[in-house]
Structure formats: structure tokens, C-alpha cells
Design a protein around this nucleic acid. Structure first.
Lengths: 252, 252
DNA sequence: GGTCGCGTTTAACATATGTATGGTCGCTGA
DNA sequence: TCAGCGACCATACATATGTTAAACGCGACC
């Protein structure tokens, strides 16, 4: 019976017998089984082997302060839990077993030789894709487990950080040319309600929003309201020089 | 003034002067500017150049039948709109300009040489990552713009397709070992409400859910209720042999 | 064979958010 | 100058979903 990973990947492209054998070999080495509810990988963990779901059901999930939990994706046999290890230093969410689950463990080195030498640019592109995914997951958490006020606060704070990173925020103010309708479309709310919430945030002095942009008078306070955790943006690569730190440092 | 793409990518790794020059060269070739609201790429389009946001603000968005729209991500200068062109045949969502926006256009071939030769396995891994992102976006749409009933129906239908693909669904039934609490965590609802909705779906004969799994008596009907569109799963690679089609064919 | 724990089911009630509508303000163009 | 338009703002009301709590079924385990 074929390996679920090849079954999955061959949706994209058929492999040669050699390639197939290589994948089968990789995934046969070592397994681990987990009981329902048991964590497979924790947030913050630095993994150096890739987990592949072989049987059962797992989930990407995030535990929120306050006890809420958001599942962002289910992982069925053939799904890889943590490809991001190649480019990100640590997991920004948990993987948990939902049903009784067995995973194949593939050493990072093993995949590295299978992929061949990756150029700097390639790796940077991977990193960009992986962080984009992380931002998508953050949006899922927002929608699933945060009230409108936090949701909007979170979005604004994230944009502040992102604009700072590219050097386009001065004095915690940045141009953000969206209408309230756009905001509604982004947050899954209704324009009327966006307006209500915005008014509330303005009244509380959490942000100012005039024609030309947003200003955040007190980022630390907005961050608290938004329950913002910066890990998912993966800005902590100090090797990249301290430019990034200098640009976003006080926000994260 | 530095190119916003290098500014972004160098968060991950510093480039050599040559690498930097290469990126700058790629993005200098051709630009296009878009007015607010104007589409940059449409769903279904096959692009063969990559769009890079240089100034302004764009968004990944999806137009739903009924007029609703969901923005899944904002794109600021330095963000790439459509890296997926390398492995996916067509866009599964739109890119629209939110503010006045200019994009640099990078020919697909240009990036291809910069990346070097990619092995089959590498490309398959890219494909896997990109479709995972697409599933995340589907979840954002669910949360933002679908009522609880459709949301759950959509999730169940997606799981049916995914289990079929890996050959673990028989007779439109599959093991799905989740509790209602898990479902609530995944859909952003409350266990009580999940229960209500599930009861409704069962009463309407849309699904049966006993201890050992889910059964979907009439997939076509569930698909309608879920307003499910299969494009985002990218199952239409007929070159992959018709195995996939055979496995999921009638569902998509 | 009882009891304990866990998941499910149901009920009554509370509220965040949606719906509908209309008003104001600042632009733009004739 | 005025009409028209789009964005923002406000109000009244409707409802999907959350909250709390309790009962029920059922397998696990002594």
C-alpha cells in the first residue's frame, strides 16, 4: 500500500520509481504514535525533524490566553506538520493529535539532501511564503476567537508593524488607504459595525484615523487591547543585522 | 532608496551585493499602476509574470456569489502577489488594488533562472505548501462570510474530498474522530451552537454522524448548502494521471 | 454492577453583531 | 452654484450566536 505522502504529492506530479523509493525510504525510518489530545509539537519548539501524519488526525492549533483554542487546519495522512523548520527558527503554533495519530519522523538532514542545495534567494522566498501563511493563520485566529474590537485592533497593530518594517511609518503613523467597507471585508464584519468599533477605539484614544492615515498614540496600549503576540511575524532573526530590530524593535 | 522586496527578504538573510543587484534588476524592468478598486489579477487567471507591490496597498480578496467579498490579506510594498504561478495553474482568488498601487512585473522566466533548476520533489513541496495556504484562505472566507451552518457544511465537505483523495473514504463515509468541542475550536463557534447546527444538518438528511465517522448521503446537496467551490484545492492536474480524478472526480 | 468521566443534547436567557435606513460632510464636475 | 456621489456617521430594530446550566447516554474501570 502506497505511502500517503507520495499519494498526496503525486497529485501534483508523477514521480519516477527512484524518487518514489526515496520518499518511501525517508518515511519508513521512525514513527511515533500519539493519543487524542496529546501535543505533537509545541509553539516555540525548535524541531529538527519533520513530522508526517501517517494515520489518524492531527491539527494545527493555537492556545489563547484565557483558555480559548483555535484550530487553524486539520492534518490528514500525507500532510506534513512542520515544513517551516527549514526557514523559520521556531514553531509559532502547536500541532496536536485529535484522534489517535501516528507520525513518521524525517530527519531534517534527510530532506535537505533530497532537495539539494538551496540558494539564498530560494530560501528567502520560502521564508516569505511561510511567514505569509503565518499571517493567514493569525487572521483565522482573529476571526474565530476575538471580538470585533480586538480583531480590528489586531489588524491595525499588525499593519503598523509591517509598515515600520518597510520604513513607511513615521511616529507610529502610517498611510493606510482603506475605506471602512474594505476593513469590513477584511475583518468579516459589517461596515456599520466597523464604524461603531472604530469610534470606540478613537474615543478611548487608542488610535486616530484621519483622511491621510492612522496614528497610534500609545502602541503598547493598543498591543494589549489587541492581545497581539509578535511571534508569528518571525522578526527575531538577529543575524539579519539589527536593522529590522531598529525598525520594529519597540513594537514586538 | 532600497527596493522594498530586498528590504523585506533581508529580514531573513542578508544578501551579497551581487544577489541584491540581481533582485533590483529584476524589479526595475516593468511597472504598472492601478487605481483604487481596480483588479490586478483575477481568479482563474493564468499569470506568467509575478507582480510585486512597489507602492500603495493591495489585497488578496475573493468575491462570493451574493455580492459578499472577503479580503484575506493586505499586501504592502515588498509583498509578492502571486508566487504560486510556479506550481499552480491558475489563481484561486483575486488581487485588487485598495489604494492607488504600483506593481513591478517580473517575468516568470527571470525568477526561474534566479532560482536555478528545481527538482520534482522540490516543486511538489512548493505545491503542497501553496495548496495548504489556499486551504487556510478558504477557512478565512468561511469564518468571515459564511453562517455557522454553511461553515460546518463546508468543512465537512472539504474533509470528504480530502479523505477521498488519500483513499480513505468509502461510500462517502469517512472516519473523522473529532469531538464537537474540536469542531467548535475549528469553526470559531461554541460547542453548543455546533451541536444545534449539527442537529439541523442531520435532520435535513445532509449528513449522518455516528461514533465511528461521518456519512454524506447526498454529496451534491451538501455541496450546494456549503457553497463549496473546489478550485482552491487545485485538483485539476490531469497530467497526474486520472487517479486523482477517479478518486475525487464526482465531488469537485 | 455501580460510579465516574466525557461527550452530547436541550433549555432559557443575554448580547454582539447584522439589517435597514437616513443624515452629514467634503469632493468633483457641469 | 448646484447636483451628484462616495465615504463616514448615527439610530432603531432584528437575530444569529454566545452563556450558563442541567440532564442524558455510554464506555471505562474498579
Amino acid at each position: 500500500m502506497p505511502n500517503p505522502l507520495t499519494l498526496k504529492l503525486e497529485q501534483y506530479t508523477p514521480f519516477s520509481p527512484q524518487e518514489r523509493a526515496r520518499i518511501e525510504a525517508m518515511t519508513r525510518s521512525r514513527c511515533e504514535t500519539y493519543a487524542p489530545g496529546q501535543p505533537i509539537i509545541h509553539e516555540g519548539e525548535k524541531v529538527d525533524q519533520i513530522h508526517l501524519v501517517l494515520t489518524g488526525l492531527a491539527a494545527r492549533s493555537k492556545q489563547l490566553p484565557g483558555g480559548d483554542r483555535q484550530i487553524m487546519a486539520f492534518l490528514v495522512p500525507g500532510d506534513l506538520c512542520d515544513v517551516e523548520v527549514f526557514v523559520l527558527d521556531a514553531m509559532d503554533h502547536d500541532i496536536v493529535a485529535v484522534g489517535e495519530t501516528t507520525c513518521g519522523l524525517i530527519a531534517r538532514s534527510e530532506i535537505e539532501v533530497a532537495l539539494g542545495e538551496l540558494s539564498n534567494l530560494t530560501k528567502a522566498l520560502w521564508w516569505s511564503t511561510m511567514t505569509d501563511s503565518a499571517v493567514l493563520r493569525a487572521r483565522i485566529i482573529d476571526h474565530g476567537r476575538r471580538a470585533a474590537r480586538e480583531r480590528i485592533a489586531h489588524l491595525v497593530y499588525e499593519m503598523l508593524v509591517r509598515y515600520r518594517i518597510i520604513g513607511q511609518a513615521r511616529d507610529n503613523a502610517f498611510a493606510f488607504p482603506v475605506t471602512q467597507q474594505d476593513l469590513a471585508d477584511a475583518t468579516g464584519l459589517t461596515p456599520v459595525h466597523v464604524n461603531r468599533v472604530l469610534k470606540g477605539l478613537r474615543d478611548d484614544g487608542l488610535l486616530a484615523w484621519d483622511r491621510k492615515g492612522v496614528r497610534v498614540p500609545d502602541p503598547a496600549r493598543l498591543k494589549r487591547v489587541a492581545r497581539f503576540e509578535s511571534a508569528y511575524l518571525h522578526l527575531d532573526r538577529t543575524e539579519a543585522g539589527d536593522d529590522v530590530a531598529a525598525r520594529a524593535g519597540d513594537l514586538v
